[in-house]
Nucleic acid binder design. Structure first.
Length: 495
RNA sequence: GGCGCGGUACCCAAGCGGCUAAGGGAGAGGUCUGCAAAACCUUUAUUCGUCGGUUCGAGUCCGACCCGCGCCUCCA
């Protein structure tokens, strides 16, 4: 039984989808006015873990993520550059797609854009006007929070306790109540305008999620995710709009991930602790190590991003990769005494139990590493047969469908691929692609390795070390084992 | 001011009423190795922010307090 912490109740609840066996998932996507930063990716990677685990658990997941391409920031940015919204947002959307793939995040089924769903938004606003949840004022349309008594249920906010808004458009528009929010904004100088049945203007932010989620997932759906900062007011407003318009419950489970901070402080360009994924990859880090780091802290806990933590993530993932490679190198034919299957089953049970408990990734990783701790010595001592490694390898492959962290590449001296990973900061699709890209270089590397082996046998260790250094500088790390030389591709030091 | 999160070893981080407080990283010593690397063994919390309380028994529940952090109208 899967359990999730539901922001709505503030408790961990058993998860039961509306339709058995299938899950309708909506996750708040990026506002495409800039390149996504590492904090954004924390949220999207969490959502990917959630989605992958649901799929792993046998659910069919329909996932929708919106792209906010019309709001104050995109309008301002496009205006400053004299571009259309479409032109202005395109590179940011492309960057989002590219980096999502690099982080091995599964694409959603739909990426609806706000600008392409004006009609759906207008429909909702019209209904809200008809039902008198919304009112007009100076060409704009606002949601009257006073008409929706359940307002504040998600965020546990009392409107009386709120500080009067010091930001936003509070001064520019006249509203009945300061807390009322804009569904539709009157035309303004320099802003895009849509001519619609409810009048000219452009949509407010919140209404797009209500419109697009119901279009693709239905009026009531299972899970809605976002960052904690979205709880109020964004998600609160979505609930108000959708439930007022549709008269049915909007979302059953709200899952919110906590923020990422850098060196203990909120990321801000002014503080100089602001990182995009590209910034980090440019320092020579493997995107899968970044993914591991982002995934390995429980989603409801604040994640403190530091380069030290990234190094730790890299080391941990590297251990998994080394183990994975060692497993694939086992050649022994006769079975060892140790019965492997019960160990694997225990690890699998622990792994699943952890994730079922509100995505307790720590417990899952602990059970994974505990298995490694038992099996690895057996592998290095040659106490396990090739056949016996199969359940372990299968376990690795199956849980990597959830973690998607791809163990590091390790190759035996024969040149056969025993693992796979990213190369030069680019994610690879899998073993075949990796083999294709690297196949050409392999004979070269083999020759060097053979030359070094010759030097070693002649006790010419200076030459041997020289060759090892040379390969290392090319990103090839050599390891001498009992069974011969093994090499793995790493990101070369000093890049 | 309101709402909320967190303080567990050198670092990260589970555990949330009861066996000797998971797991990862780092450090130290050792085994193996020409040397490295990898791996393995040993080692690093009589103690879980502080002080009280409840209990046969508490990081785990209750109260107070001390720190750190987030949100409070368009930031994941």
């Amino acid at each position: 039984m899967i359990r999730f912490h539901n922001t709505l109740s503030g408790k961990v609840e058993s998860f039961e989808p509306i339709e058995p066996g299938s899950v309708k998932l909506y996750t708040c996507g990026p506002t495409v006015y800039d390149f996504p930063h590492i904090g954004n990716w924390r949220a999207y990677v969490f959502e990917d873990l959630l989605k992958r685990f649901l799929i792993f658990s046998g659910y069919k997941v329909t996932h929708v993520m919106n792209l906010t391409d019309v709001d104050d920031k995109t309008i301002r940015g496009a205006g400053a550059k004299g571009l259309s919204l479409e032109e202005y947002t395109r590179p940011f959307i492309e960057a989002f797609d590219r980096e999502r793939d690099i982080l091995n995040i599964l694409p959603a089924n739909h990426y609806p854009r706000a600008t392409e769903h004006i009609r759906e938004m207008v429909e909702i606003i019209q209904i809200l006007l008809d039902k008198t949840f919304a009112y007009r004022k100076d060409g704009s349309i606002y949601f009257a929070i006073a008409k929706f008594p359940a307002y504040g249920r998600l965020s546990k906010v009392n409107l009386e306790d709120l500080r009067p808004g010091s930001r936003g458009d509070a001064d520019e528009y006249e509203k009945d109540s300061v807390h009322d929010f804009a569904l539709w904004k009157a035309p303004k100088e320099g802003e895009p305008v849509w001519e619609t049945e409810i009048g000219p203007g452009r949509p407010g932010w919140h209404v797009e999620c209500s419109a697009m989620s119901s279009k693709y997932l239905g009026r009531t759906f299972d899970i809605h995710c976002g960052g904690v900062d979205n709880i109020f007011p964004h998600h609160e407003n979505e609930i108000a709009q959708s439930e007022a318009a549709n008269g049915v419950k909007f979302v059953n489970y709200w899952l919110h991930c906590h923020h990422l901070v850098v060196d203990g402080e909120k990321m801000a360009k002014s503080k100089g602790n602001f990182y995009t994924l590209a910034d980090i990859l440019a320092k020579g880090y493997d995107p899968y190590d970044v993914r591991y780091l982002l995934i390995s802290t429980h989603y409801r806990k604040m994640l403190n991003f530091t380069f030290d933590a990234l190094e730790q993530a890299k080391a941990a993932r590297s251990r998994l990769g080394n183990f994975f490679g060692a497993l694939k190198d086992v050649t022994r034919e006769s079975d060892g005494i140790q019965d492997i299957r019960p160990l694997v089953e225990a690890a699998r049970a622990g792994f699943v139990a952890g994730l079922e408990d509100d995505l307790n990734i720590s417990e899952s990783l602990a059970s994974l590493f505990s298995l490694v701790k038992i099996i690895y010595p057996l592998v290095t001592q040659g106490a396990i047969s090739r056949r016996q490694t199969q359940p372990v390898l299968e376990f690795f492959f199956s849980i990597d469908e959830v973690l998607a962290i791809k163990p590091s590449p390790v190759r035996s001296a024969s040149g056969k691929i025993t693992g796979f990973s990213s190369v030069e900061g680019k994610a690879t699709a899998g073993e075949e692609q990796y083999a294709d890209v690297e196949g050409r270089l392999e004979s070269e590397i083999q020759k060097k390795i053979e030359a070094r082996q010759k030097a070693r046998s002649e006790k010419d260790f200076n030459l041997a070390d020289e060759i090892r250094e040379e390969l290392l500088s090319q990103g090839i790390l050599l390891e001498d084992t009992k069974d011969g030389v093994r090499w793995k591709k790493i990101i070369p030091p000093g890049t």
